[in-house]
């Protein structure tokens, strides 16, 4: 049954890619992680990870606190570089390129791999300035293009109608849920390929959470999304694939339905049924 499901999925995947051009099946893999190990000082935080992230899917990473799920997410756009005690072995390939290759500039990687953080973190600037921050960094100065980017990004994040009359006002005046959607819009503005989300709804109320979950469903048409979440129901609701992490290891990674209804590992089952975590 499980095998059949995977097969169906792969078949659908194959059809998807043939629709969009003559890419091979391998091109559908966005991130290919091979034997990834990561240490914070002496603390072995990620152990021998091997997993692939697929295009136009929502991939959820679940697991108890301290299991390494956020660490793995931050490895994908190399935000871990900011911590000086980090040591990494193994490879992560983004669209076939090793992200740890010294000739691959992290700024270039992060232009393709955007990130939304746990706590909404808009800049203390206007809504408009928040959105155009990224495009301006990359040299876009034309006012008309910037205006278009702002509208497209805000629409993409389902925020445009709520803020269209106050684009020049400070982003701190928005509610927490609106701020988080603004951060998503800000990430969309640089037209990334992948969006990483680190517990994006954990600081939000249920209604804002619902809005962002709906948003992710529409975003995955164009983007690939990796989300770390504490909330198992959320993972079950929104993701196509789920990885279960425990103590820095990837215990099980499969299509979400399989993980939640027919997990092959006993630890996964125990976690999902709430026996620990």
């Amino acid at each position: 049954m499980q095998a059949v499901q995977v097969k169906i999925n792969q078949k659908m995947a194959f059809e998807n890619t043939t629709d969009s051009g003559n890419e091979t099946k391998a091109a559908r893999i966005v991130f290919h992680t091979k034997d990834l190990n990561l240490w914070y000082g002496a603390d072995h935080a990620l152990k021998n990870l091997n997993l692939n992230i697929y295009e136009n899917e929502v991939t959820a990473i679940i697991g108890p606190s301290g299991c390494g799920k956020s660490t793995y997410l931050k490895t994908l756009n190399r935000m871990n570089d900011l911590i000086s005690s980090v040591r990494i072995t193994g490879d992560v390939h983004y669209r076939g390129r090793n992200i740890f290759d010294p000739t691959y500039h992290v700024e270039e990687l992060r232009t393709s791999v955007g990130m939304v953080f746990q706590k909404p973190n808009p800049f203390p600037k206007s809504i408009y300035e928040n959105i155009v921050y990224g495009p301006k960094l990359h040299g876009i100065k034309n006012k008309k293009i910037l205006d278009e980017i702002v509208e497209r990004s805000l629409r993409g994040a389902a925020l445009f109608d709520e803020v269209k009359d106050r684009l020049k006002e400070n982003a701190y005046g928005l509610s927490g849920g609106q701020q988080q959607r603004l951060c998503i819009a800000r990430a969309l503005a640089i037209e990334p390929d992948v969006i990483l989300m680190d517990e994006p709804t954990s600081a939000l109320d249920p209604i804002s959470t619902l809005k962002i979950e709906e948003l992710m469903q529409s975003l995955k048409q164009e983007y690939s999304i990796v989300i770390v979440t504490h909330n198992m129901q959320q993972a079950a609701r929104i993701s196509d694939r789920t990885a279960f992490f425990l103590n820095g290891e990837c215990i099980e990674y499969d299509v979400t339905d399989t993980i939640f209804y027919r997990p092959s590992n006993q630890k996964t089952e125990e976690y999902i049924t709430g026996r620990f975590g």
Partner: peptide, 22 residues
Amino acid sequence: PNHLAHASLGLGATKWQTIQKV
């Protein structure tokens, strides 16, 4: 706050751009 610098770096800003603009 660190989270402001992270937001900037996460959008592909260089360190200098982040220092200068944020």
